[in-house]
Design a protein around this nucleic acid. Structure first.
Length: 258
DNA sequence: GGCCAGGTCCAAT
DNA sequence: ATTGGACATGGC
């Protein structure tokens, strides 16, 4: 299919919202739930031997009005190649539970190993996959999902969905917002992690330490219905420009096949 | 070989 | 209400 002008598959896949991918020449092998598909970008073309256009459009949110979004956010660095994806909600929940006190390479590895399990109720097994102290949180989330938690999220408003997610031990405001944003398409969600906190404080609060609740309401007011896009952009630029230590790995440019 | 990590929970102010 | 430490272990 023809992708929207400027769409950047590499940026979208590797910006940190998603973990279950393996790079291929010119594209990626994507896992989301039981689904696996390869996808390749070559200039304006986006092609998959496995997934149809409707699925790609939904998964990569190609229907989002990126021009309007860019104008509404007023962030000079905003990149119109970026899209918030709609990944499998369980993968997303598990991935961001694993994200606490961790890093992206490790999350990816653990999640990949978890993908081979059909039952996540055994903590010892989760530890063997590398979950560490997060193992009991994962089993709690697994039980919650088994009892229909994820489908309850679909039908309720953002605030209720957030509250419901936060009933899971190991899921606080940040993880809950990640799930709302990266799986359920709740584009107002604005997860505040250490990087986004730094970015907001430095850029909008004169460097003064500010409670998250304050940052949260600021973001809602300033960025509105597409706040999630602002969050992802702030996360990216803060990591790249200010990585106190090692530079954040830039997304590998997708190269033409062959 | 250390050091550190896309948070959350809990106890102690 | 706010703050500080523990948490388990892979990746760099």
């Amino acid at each position: 299919m023809r992708a929207p002008r400027g769409f950047n598959l590499a940026l979208t896949v590797e910006c940190g919202q998603f973990f279950r991918y393996e790079p291929l020449p010119g594209g990626y092998r994507i896992s989301s739930g039981r689904r696996r598909f390869d996808v390749f970008q070559d200039g304006p073309r986006l092609d998959s031997p496995d997934a149809d256009d409707a699925f790609l459009t939904h998964f990569f949110s190609l229907d989002h009005p990126i021009g309007r979004i860019a104008r509404s956010l007023r962030l000079p660095e905003f990149d119109r190649g970026l899209r918030l994806i709609r990944q499998d909600s369980w993968d997303c929940l598990a991935g961001f539970i694993l994200s606490m006190a961790s890093n992206i390479p490790r999350i990816r590895g653990t999640l990949r190993r978890l993908g081979d399990l059909s039952d996540l109720s055994d903590e010892a097994r989760l530890r063997r996959c590398g979950a560490g102290f997060r193992a009991p949180y994962l089993t709690a989330a697994w039980a919650w999902a088994r009892d229909g938690g994820l489908s309850r999220i679909e039908t309720v408003d953002d605030a209720s969905a957030r509250t419901e997610l936060m009933t899971i031990p190991g899921v606080g405001p940040k993880v809950a917002d990640c799930v709302l944003l990266y799986a359920f398409g709740r584009t107002r969600a604005f997860p505040i992690d250490v990087w986004v906190r730094r970015a907001l404080v430095r850029r909008f609060f004169g460097g003064r330490r500010t409670p998250d609740a304050r940052l949260q309401s600021f973001a809602a007011r300033r960025f509105g219905p597409w706040a999630g896009y602002a969050q992802q952009m702030l996360f990216l630029t803060e990591r790249i420009t200010r990585s106190g230590r090692r530079a954040a790995p830039a997304p590998s440019r997708a190269r033409p096949r062959g």
